[in-house]
Design a protein around this nucleic acid. Structure first.
Lengths: 147, 147
DNA sequence: ATGATCCTGACTAACTTAGTCGTGAATTCG
DNA sequence: CGAATTCACGACTAAGTTAGTCAGGATCAT
């Protein structure tokens, strides 16, 4: 695995929707501005997230993007796998549906546990959790300004 | 992180040395043949492992490569970090000596635990452990042939 | 209709990966 | 010594990935 800007930006976009999406659709340009993401790139990330059913979009004036489910029902694991593809650190751990058994490699047994544990931890974190942390981070940043 | 052929081949080369290096130096071409690694590529990997003090090489006829320490004193973590560079899944977790504090990202707190856990597990596995597993794998492969 | 907004695919530059190849340097043996 | 053997090192390359940009089309509220 390796979380690049896709995973970083994409997750932040969803956190943004979790935080500001209460009052109807949020526009892409607004997310891009708030999260410092290139607008044209965010476009692609939202398209991917829509394909995988995390967001719903409406066009036309007043349109924008919304989460399809409550933020506490969306887990980080699924979001990252949507944005980045498989998170497997070794090709031989990839879970492909083709049924082809991947070749065994010398370190497989070590990484199997690490990978399973990683996925379990990521599955235990929801967008709501991330949004709460972000909220707290913003609060403390403002506090430190006002000192 | 992402373990590519560097990490796979390099570790297998060291396992090979752990298994067959008891009787003096092992030649690169011999490792390459046994482990199915392109000879000229293995060259680079051994160079890296030598730079980081995992193997010692001697030239000339009868020369080859040897582990610098007993196989149970070399852990997988250090070997992989030598071959692949930092295993951090996010740039913000990279431990650089420059002292520059990397930017914080939204998911950092989740990955911090995962990364620490991963490193601990990799540090707990030695080349001797890997060699023992490989020995067992070979044994059972031979056994299944003779049925 | 029109203007806001999302949607899609083509394109690109920089970087990484997985090597190959050629030459040089050290060591041993006859 | 000199030839054979083995490692040592750097230049080069092809393919794939990443991180975008850009142009044009589709959809919808008003």
């Amino acid at each position: 695995m390796h979380i690049g800007t896709k995973g970083d930006y994409g997750v932040r976009a969803l956190i943004d929707l979790a935080m500001y999406g209460g009052e109807g659709p949020v526009q892409r340009t607004e997310i891009a501005r708030r999260q410092h993401i290139p607008d044209s790139y965010l476009d692609h990330l939202l398209a991917q997230l829509r394909r995988d059913g995390f967001v719903r979009s409406t066009r036309g004036p007043g349109g924008g993007h919304q989460l399809t489910r409550p933020a506490d029902e969306i887990c980080l694991l699924h979001v990252l796998e949507s944005l980045e593809g498989s998170l497997a650190p070794l090709p031989c751990l990839e879970d492909d549906e083709s049924g082809e058994p991947h070749s065994v490699c010398a370190q497989q047994w070590v990484w199997r546990e690490i990978y399973d544990d990683m996925r379990a931890r990521l599955a235990a974190v929801s967008l709501a959790d991330l949004a709460a942390r972000e909220q707290e981070r913003l609060r403390s940043a403002v506090a430190s300004y006002s000192i």
